[in-house]
Amino acid sequence: MIVIRTPGRLSLRLHPRALAVGLACGLLTLAVGVLAVGHGDYPMTPADVLRTLTGGGSAAEEFIVTQLRLPRLVTGLAVGAALGLAGAVFQSLVGNPLGSPDILGFTQGAATGALVVVVLGGSSAALAGAAALGGITTGLLIYLVAWRRGVHGYRLVLVGIGMSAILTGVNGYLLTRAPLMEAARAMLWLTGSLDGRGWSNAAPLLAALVVAVPVLLACGPALRMTELGDDAATGLGVNVHRLRMVLLAAAVLLVALSAAAAGPVSFVALTAPHLARRLTRAPGTNLLPAAISGALLTVTADQVAVRAFPAQLPVGVVTGVIGGGYLVWLLATERRAGRL
């Protein structure tokens, strides 16, 4: 641990390993990003990409990079970061390594919103808006049902699971109501895809990140105190109920808007915080590393989905496979460690 102190009363605490890992992951993410922007029908070398990004490319390159490929990359980065953050927050709120929005019904709520638009027939903008609305409404509902003198982790889990089962039923029904072509489009959306995403898809999520990230980071120290249990955290001066409400609101907003941007990209929220914890080896909740590893995971998975298969797959298939495999492994090890 490194401590930086000013002659005044300010002091900062830095963990060298977390810092190094964060920087490395950040750089790696940028590198994958440059490769991603270079890939396509009009291939560009990393040098070309960097030249174009700094304003030295031809008009055509400029157009391809800033209008076609960069938006997709930025959407992927934002979705990954948002899901990583939200996952870390949920896991900490619920006090369980499996507490991810995919499992607790928030994602299903966003899907319900989107499917309603698919069945009724609406534009992509309407679909994104409905997804965000569905996610936020579900979050609100779960909060209201689970509330009892504050929200406790296990109630959130059970209510979330119940809600998720109900909404899965509703979603299945909506899917049967859509014509086949629309159903296929809906399935694609439900898997989570970055295909053809433009700046307009990324903008709302970016705005949400600008608001939510500072709030969440400010809550970070208090969140670490809640790891000691609600009573101990209260004793240390944390207003646990208010903290939970703020965190839940921020996390739901991030999940809902990332679903609006790219569909419910599965299991990033589950996997990214674990990845961050393993890399930094720091116990407890680490929000910023979770955000970075979420971004890295999402853009890398997207590149795998685009390059490794003859037919382009949506990113959600790759994250789903990674996440599902990881989940099984996690269940096995957590059980052995007696934490489950």
Partner: peptide
């Protein structure tokens, strides 16, 4: 306050846990 059954986070060190008392 020392509650009846506080939770010990996985893998936390002694000094780290004691240091959390400085939070307020």
């Amino acid at each position: 306050l020392l509650p009846q059954s506080p939770i010990t986070p996985d893998g936390i060190g002694v000094a780290d846990l004691v240091a959390r008392g400085r939070y307020p």
